[in-house]
Design a protein around this nucleic acid. Structure first.
Lengths: 238, 238
DNA sequence: CGCAACTTTGAGTGAATTCAAGTATTGTGG
DNA sequence: CCACAATACTTGAATTCACTCAAAGTTGCG
């Protein structure tokens, strides 16, 4: 089977056979990791980047006195710390949300890509730019949307990001406990609980046990002010 | 005089003479722009990136019903939309905060860099990664810090980013009206006004007319939980 | 000098918080 | 396979932080 990473990249641009072969060749041996394990720690200086093959992980920043902010959620096929290749010291940790399978890609090999595969380099660079665009959208949601709308937005985003690479016909993974969801949305657990109930009451979604099924995407997207442009998904080929 | 962009890059890694010459050669003719002008609009598909030579700009995302979120503030030497080189459609606008001088860099020339100057390419890529790291830190500040601490953090960040490239001995530029500051912090104008007053009352900073002078950086950084690691500033040469 | 933009203050309101239980659900060792 | 622990979820009540509305100062510019 193709690497999900390749599918991720092909959502943005075509890859030629050499590029695919290169990608396949640089991915290390897969390794299983249980849930709630730190893959990367704040302050680390990694020498390889981690590819998420199966499962879900998140980036989190720790503040004083137990404050925790989740700044990203990764889906299968995501490079969880591709930026670790160029940023010397990690500004955040990466933790598994579910049991996962990961593989390492040595930074030396990524560097080789930058030296001989410019088109692939641009595409990998683009992946990190989409990351940044997601951060910006989260900032807007946190700063200027209601808790309900913000939560709805996260569902829309997780749905659209996953439907490009996985089968979502029977629902998609939303592998956050309400406590983690609170850390992602910047809310208290109690309030998250109320907002999730409110969202269920709209009947736009069914949400139980870490799986979400969308019943009325259009209404949800309207509530969330969701516009997928920021994800840089290709509509027309270039 | 050297481009401030070169100084920005040299805060992260050494550049050789060829790289500097290349950068100098790709920068277009400088152009003056008044304050409060949109340089880039949401939905644009630019064919050149904009370098900020003098003045200040911000990125902003517009939501329904007048909601506005500022997601970045640029200082002189910043590439305000370097990511526009690879992201097809801009997910945000860029607006001047003060009268500014800008210069364009054609995307074709940036592409040439990716084809023949891998080290410079990595360094430009790094600039966009620092952008993302700043976004993450803002997310943590919005989600898990008090309005006072968040505001203090923004001051620390603006100070450290500017002191690397400009003379800040008589204070540094903080060119946001309280209304814009509200849009950056995700607060109301009224509340920002109170928080700014509270911050002034600490005597850690003097802040008037868009210029900030820090009186007690250590105390301010403590209040803000500021740790500059995320800015990827070089301490030791590599 | 007068308008426009920005800043400041007061009062009342509301969204989200904390504190405090209590109820499900899941996982595990006996 | 049950009992019990641990984790996750839910609810209620009181509080607080930040908001809106409203209006008055202040500053800067043409």
């Amino acid at each position: 089977m193709d690497l999900l990473l390749i599918r991720q990249l092909e959502l943005r641009d075509r890859l030629d056979a050499d590029e695919k072969a290169f990608l396949q060749s640089i991915v290390g041996t897969p390794r299983a990791v249980p849930a709630n394990i730190d893959i990367v720690r704040e302050g680390d200086r990694p020498t390889a980047s981690t590819l998420l093959l199966e499962g879900y992980t998140c980036r989190q920043t720790t503040l004083r006195e137990g404050g925790r902010q989740i700044t990203s959620i990764h889906v299968p096929g995501d490079f969880v710390d591709l930026h670790g290749f160029l940023i010397r010291t990690m500004d955040h940790g990466v933790t598994t949300l579910t049991p996962s399978r990961i593989a390492l890609v040595d930074h030396g090999l990524l560097r080789r890509a930058t030296e001989s595969l410019p088109h692939l380099t641009r595409l990998l660079w683009l992946l990190t730019l989409v990351d940044a665009a997601i951060h910006r959208r989260w900032l807007a949601a946190m700063g200027r949307q209601s808790a309900l709308s913000h939560t709805a937005h996260l569902l829309c985003e997780m749905y659209v990001r996953q439907r490009g690479i996985l089968d979502v016909s029977s629902g998609f993974g939303m592998p956050l406990t309400q406590a983690k969801l609170a850390d992602a949305l910047g809310l208290s657990v109690v309030h998250v609980n109320r907002v999730v109930r409110e969202l269920r009451e709209t009947r736009y979604v069914e949400w139980q046990g870490g799986v979400v099924r969308i019943l009325d995407f259009e209404a949800l997207a309207e509530l969330a002010e969701f516009d997928p442009t920021y994800l840089s998904l290709r509509r027309e080929p270039r």
